[in-house]
Design a protein around this nucleic acid. Structure first.
Length: 424
RNA sequence: GGAGAGGUCGCAUAGUGGUCUAGUGCGCCGCACUCGAAAUGCGGUGAGGCGCAAGUCUCCGUGAGUUCGAAUCUCACCCUCUCCGCCA
């Protein structure tokens, strides 16, 4: 959601920003309904004020025992009452329509975001480490997992369906070690406060983060109008929905481990082997609530917090800044962390660190007050993965696979895995 | 799932059809008194919308209804608590 005043007073600025993203938004429709709504509201308020005056006078006349005069006053309200009922109905309709229109607006890109039409025009920011060298052709994680009995993909598909993975034995252990290590890392080393959220959320929460109403087809829905979380971002961001925070408490840094559930509609066939794109996966998510003037500095630190996991594990990665065309609907600025996957032979996105500015906080109505007596302002909200497990799992397998068929466990993971080497 | 109680301005409470422009206490802010503080006194203290402004409208869990008028009455739903049942 954008600032209404901005759309109203500078529609050209809004149009230009959205055009930079190669997206569209119903700007004209907004302007039309917004204007109409304000006209109706002004007219309605005059009538309500008149009605309030008359009702009050009836109360006073009754109190003075002037029943006849009160009856006369009552007659005056008949037409007004009908007009108000009609006006209220019309305004409700327009409020609803405007809200629907408003929710369709994408966020505007920050001015620093490079212009570009798609992912080919993203910008390499930095690289850490090097591609590991192998004497042999590096194996893909699905082959390694097969040799060591770490995954049972056919049975995962049998139990649930394609895209649902059964981790087995040391594979299950490694998976559990990864997210336990990461949540420990973000809370004890990087200063995040730990959250363990519900896995089912209501519509209001998904609207707050911007997943609804536009991206319903990406979500699993259950009965009672609840949805499985596509990321812990949704429940964690909504912790403060409809609240006013104290300025002195910002920046708030939260980290949560959760399962994530995505239908991946429209992504069939792309990067689907092994655990590259699955419907259920584990992830540690970081969410920050900041003052507007601090959000871009916080974004840089957020990326570093995501990176620090990979540095600690000794995995080669690079940081990409998304161009306007690849930024997506919600973000104002976004960095992707891409992890080198030797067996797949590509860099794979493992974290997206975004500044949403006030886009989510307007939708979720999350504000802060700088000092007592001051007007509440919208916070800036940021989030990033820290990190997603499946691709990290696959990179660990592919990077640390040894000629003898074993996997050397990175030092930081050993206390969690319980061994320094995974063997057949 | 069943029975009961309850949801009011940060907190606690009052208000059961008409000066409610929601009272009071606590907390908080300002001022006075004080060397300073405490105590005391006085004043102020929710959110949102429309409007250039004066101002005005909306919000007492949410939504609908009755009424000239609803925090107050009716209905539905949501949430919390207590007890019972079931259960990891």
């Amino acid at each position: 959601m954008l600032d209404r005043e901005l759309i109203r007073n500078h529609p050209d600025v809004v149009r230009a920003g959205i055009a930079r993203k190669r997206l569209s938004a119903p700007v004209d429709e907004f302007l039309e309904v917004d204007l109409k709504r304000r006209q109706i509201q002004t007219e309605l308020q005059d009538k309500q004020a008149e009605m309030n005056r008359i009702s009050k006078s009836i109360g006073m006349l009754m109190g003075q025992g002037k029943k006849d005069e009160a009856e006369v006053a009552k007659l005056q309200t008949k037409d007004l009452k009908e007009a108000i009922a009609a006006g209220e109905a019309q305004q409700r309709e327009l409020d609803f329509a405007l809200r629907e229109i408003e929710l369709q607006f994408p966020n505007l890109p920050h001015e620093s975001v490079p212009d570009g039409k798609d992912e080919d025009e993203n910008v390499l920011v930095r690289t850490w480490g090097e591609k590991p060298k192998f004497d042999h052709e590096p194996l893909a994680h699905w082959d390694i997992a097969d040799k060591l009995g770490l995954l049972d993909l056919p049975r995962g598909a049998k139990i649930t369906g394609s895209g649902f993975v059964l981790y087995t034995g040391m594979g299950a252990r490694l998976q559990r070690a990864l997210f336990t290590f990461m949540i420990d890392h973000q809370t004890t080393r990087n200063g995040y406060y730990e959250i363990y959220p519900p896995y089912l959320v209501n519509r209001a929460s998904l609207i707050g983060t911007g997943n609804l109403p536009k991206f319903e087809e990406d979500l699993y829905k259950v009965d009672d109008d609840l949805y499985l979380v596509p990321t812990a971002e949704v429940p964690v961001t909504n912790i403060y929905r409809d609240e006013i925070l104290k300025g002195e408490d910002l920046t708030i840094k939260l980290a949560a481990y959760s399962g994530c559930f995505r239908r991946e509609a429209g992504a069939a066939g792309k990067d689907t082997r092994g655990v590259l794109r699955i419907h259920q996966f584990d992830k540690v998510e970081m969410v920050k609530f900041t003052k507007p003037e601090e959000s871009y500095a916080e974004l840089e630190m957020l990326v570093q917090d995501a990176e620090s996991v990979l540095k600690t594990l000794g995995l080669h990665y690079r940081i990409i800044e998304l161009c306007t065309g690849d930024l997506g609907s919600k973000g104002a600025k976004c960095y992707d962390v891409e992890l080198w996957s030797p067996g797949v032979g590509r860099y794979l996105e493992i974290s997206s660190c975004s500044n949403f500015e006030a886009y989510q906080s307007r939708r979720a109505n999350i504000r802060f007050r700088r000092a007592q007596g001051e007007k509440p302002e919208f916070v800036h909200i940021l989030n990033g993965s820290g990190l997603a497990c499946p691709r990290l799992f696959s990179a660990v397998l592919e990077t640390f696979y040894q000629p003898d068929g074993s996997i050397v466990v990175p030092e930081a993971l050993r206390p969690y895995v319980g061994t320094d080497r995974i063997t057949a």
